[in-house]
Lab assay of single mutants.
Amino acid sequence: MPSETPQAEVGPTGCPHRSGPHSAKGSLEKGSPEDKEAKEPLWIRPDAPSRCTWQLGRPASESPHHHTAPAKSPKILPDILKKIGDTPMVRINKIGKKFGLKCELLAKCEFFNAGGSVKDRISLRMIEDAERDGTLKPGDTIIEPTSGNTGIGLALAAAVRGYRCIIVMPEKMSSEKVDVLRALGAEIVRTPTNARFDSPESHVGVAWRLKNEIPNSHILDQYRNASNPLAHYDTTADEILQQCDGKLDMLVASVGTGGTITGIARKLKEKCPGCRIIGVDPEGSILAEPEELNQTEQTTYEVEGIGYDFIPTVLDRTVVDKWFKSNDEEAFTFARMLIAQEGLLCGGSAGSTVAVAVKAAQELQEGQRCVVILPDSVRNYMTKFLSDRWMLQKGFLKEEDLTEKKPWWWHLRVQELGLSAPLTVLPTITCGHTIEILREKGFDQAPVVDEAGVILGMVTLGNMLSSLLAGKVQPSDQVGKVIYKQFKQIRLTDTLGRLSHILEMDHFALVV
């Protein structure tokens, strides 16, 4: 994948999101292997301009796509893939009243899908469409860049269908997702969380590099694949309309690839034109409109599966009536509230959605109805927002919020430890010299600072030695090549209790 991002070429006709291997024109390309080798690009942008032909009021008969309808489940399912879809609609009884809503608040519980998330729908649909058009064949390999849930859905379907599955996901995604993927037989590649989507090191860039190296491999490409919004247009939206008897006044959905909100909203605009569509985008993402909503100094966020630093091709923002931004604290607070007060075992993005819903639905009156999409299960986040310690460490809970008995030293300040200034190293000294210094002084790690004293990161003896043994660096290389740029900081005025929580999850903390 090139470091400079080429513009994806656009073909003359058809839909841009065809499933299957992508040609340089962004659509299915038939021909000899030699032709494909000559024409197939190194990668295709996940934010390529959409060429979708959908228009409100256009006859369904003019759609270029294969459409399906929700099917009634048999008493005995032939395999677990038949437990994807037909998820329950559940009334939220307490939270709406707590925040003064007059309307009825309903939750579409997508964590009841077989793999635990709304992404099971698009995973199965992308595979079925690729099999139907002859792209996927027995023994082929599926590769997908994902925040985890699409990966789980694909790995689940691949396990049943017999495909090899490789999932490329950023490091910030939970260990629970990784464990589930491994249990399903998927191979996992992790990428830096802070890598831009168009960087060769991003999950998108690495996935395309693997595709170019592995024979008979395919990126189904949830960011561009029409099967993504079509899955929701054909099934999720129809289920909502049936469950609500066609009567709903507002739908609120958090947005990642945009397939969920695009597919549902398009069908609702056709069948229930008075329904307002509300999009939820986390602070630090750029999906919301108008652009002024996205202006923030924050560039990272903890909530998973929603928000991006690019506009995915499948996201149709014209069908969203209003956007709201959400933050991590309210997302996790509301997710825990949904679990504790409503018994809905949902993930953090569901918290984002409901946090926005109780604001947006203030305009609705008694007798009206708001539906929220709860995308995934708490299963993926047992060591994250479900953990009091994690919430404390991230600053989303305060010590006084917890009532468990603490040891005698818990409320003492870090400054009472009488710490001395640490050994520091410059980023320009060599790895070999740094190892000598650390061994001589008896230290395992040291902060790396520039000549102005600005902290650049941390270097550890173990990481340097393993990097040297693996051949990633040489003793003569500058130590700046092996620094940890993500590390926890703590102030002298913070409590030892807070430091204790940090050290339970990290090997060190830097006192500043």
Rank of each mutant, 00 (worst) to 15 (best):
M173Q: 06
L181N: 01
D79M: 06
L42K: 11
K177Y: 00
A130G: 10
H203P: 06
F99T: 10
L268V: 08
T262Y: 00
I92P: 00
D86T: 10
R276S: 05
K25C: 15
A231I: 07
K83S: 10
E104R: 05
K36P: 10
I264A: 02
Y223W: 01
L181W: 01
L106Y: 11
D140F: 09
I219C: 03
A265Y: 01
K82E: 11
P6W: 03
M250F: 05
A8W: 05
L181F: 02
K172Q: 06
A186G: 06
T68R: 12
N194P: 10
L241H: 03
N149R: 04
K172L: 01
M169V: 07
I142A: 04
S63N: 09
L42T: 11
H17D: 06
C272G: 09
F99C: 12
G246M: 08
F197N: 06
T262P: 02
S254N: 11
S147C: 02
H66V: 14
V168A: 07
D249A: 12
G85T: 01
N212C: 13
P59C: 13
G31N: 12
G14E: 10
C272R: 12
K177G: 00
G96A: 15
D179K: 04
Y163I: 04
K83R: 11
G205V: 07
L105F: 13
A8S: 05
C275I: 14
G185W: 01
W54F: 08
I167M: 10
R45L: 14
I122S: 03
T236R: 03
E270T: 03
A183T: 10
G148H: 00
K75H: 06
E171N: 09
A183C: 15
K82Q: 12
V118Q: 01
V178D: 05
G85A: 07
S202P: 04
G31S: 12
D221Y: 14
N194R: 05
S32H: 05
L28C: 09
A38T: 14
N228V: 00
A265P: 05
R161V: 08
F112M: 08
R51F: 07
K269S: 03
C109D: 03
L77E: 05
D129F: 03
P138G: 14
V180Q: 05
G151L: 00
C275N: 04
L28S: 11
I240M: 06
M126V: 05
A107L: 03
P138W: 12
T68G: 13
H218I: 12
L248N: 02
A114H: 08
L248C: 09
E110Q: 06
A130K: 00
A159I: 04
P33E: 14
G185P: 00
S3H: 10
A71F: 12
H17W: 13
V168Y: 04
I152E: 01
Y223D: 00
S61Q: 15
R182M: 04
G205K: 09
S50W: 01
Q7H: 12
K211S: 05
G148I: 00
D35Y: 13
I142T: 04
D198I: 06
K39I: 06
Q55H: 15
L230F: 11
E213N: 13
V204D: 05
E29W: 15
T257Q: 01
P49E: 09
K137R: 12
R125I: 03
P59E: 11
S227Q: 10
E34K: 12
G148R: 02
A48N: 11
R58N: 09
L248F: 14
W43Y: 13
W43P: 08
E176Y: 00
S3Q: 10
V189I: 07
P6R: 05
V189H: 07
R161Q: 08
L124F: 10
R132Q: 11
G205W: 15
W54L: 06
D129W: 06
E37K: 14
I166G: 03
D238Y: 10
T53K: 10
A231P: 08
E9R: 09
L220P: 03
S217D: 02
T257V: 00
G96H: 08
T262N: 07
I152A: 02
S227I: 07
A71E: 12
L181I: 06
E239Y: 00
K172R: 09
R58I: 12
P64V: 03
K75A: 15
P6F: 08
A71C: 04
A253G: 03
